[in-house]
């Protein structure tokens, strides 16, 4: 077997689910470039343990990526990017609603990593609370609590943003990782 054929399953996975995973990585890190870095870092981890992974590697890759986002990524002190304007998408909608949506996504970057991960899993990947808990290795109660706090904080931040056009950065952020 040629070496490159060893990762066929991973290539297939990226072809079919790559955009969802990269989208999650972008939302988790706050930027396209850092999102690609995060996904690549997770892929490296998967490759490192490839010989031990059986079945569908998607769950393993997803868990690795979210764990990196909430733990190591934060500790490594990666530069936080600010999400720029989204690609132009033809959506007939009220301008202020679009502004609010953008403000919510930009405000996401100011949440603690754990809350951010919970919200991305819930509202981007459409996971149930139980699935989020399984991915992040915590209880459903912790997920519920983190989601509630995250939404509350987003409401605060985006509310300020509507008046000032840029999300207000909290003067004193919550401790990282606390949810």
């Amino acid at each position: 077997m040629r070496p490159e054929h060893r990762f066929d399953r991973l290539e297939e996975l990226l072809a079919t689910r790559g955009s969802v995973l990269l989208g999650a990585a972008v939302l988790l890190t706050g930027g396209r470039e850092s999102g690609e870095d995060l996904l690549q870092h997770a892929l490296e981890r998967v490759l490192r343990h490839w010989h031990r992974i059986e079945g569908d590697p998607e769950g393993y890759l997803r868990r690795t990526m979210y764990n990196l986002a909430t733990d190591r990524w934060r500790r490594l002190g990666r530069r936080r990017e600010v999400i720029g304007p989204p690609p132009v998408v033809a959506i007939a909608d009220r301008a202020e609603q679009i502004d609010l949506r953008d403000a919510l996504v930009r405000a996401l970057a100011h949440l603690p990593p754990r809350q951010r991960a919970v919200l991305v899993l819930r509202y981007w990947e459409q996971c149930s609370e139980a699935e989020v808990a399984a991915t992040l290795g915590c209880s459903a109660g912790a997920v519920k609590s983190a989601a509630s706090r995250g939404l509350h904080r987003l409401r605060e931040l985006s509310g300020a943003d509507l008046r000032t056009t840029e999300p207000r950065i909290p003067e004193k952020s919550l401790p990282e990782g606390r949810s």
Partner: peptide, 20 residues
Amino acid sequence: LLRTGMQRHGGDRSVPPRLL
């Protein structure tokens, strides 16, 4: 709003082949 906002920002992002 958050869900649709995420779709606007996170959607349609193809993975560059160089990543793997």
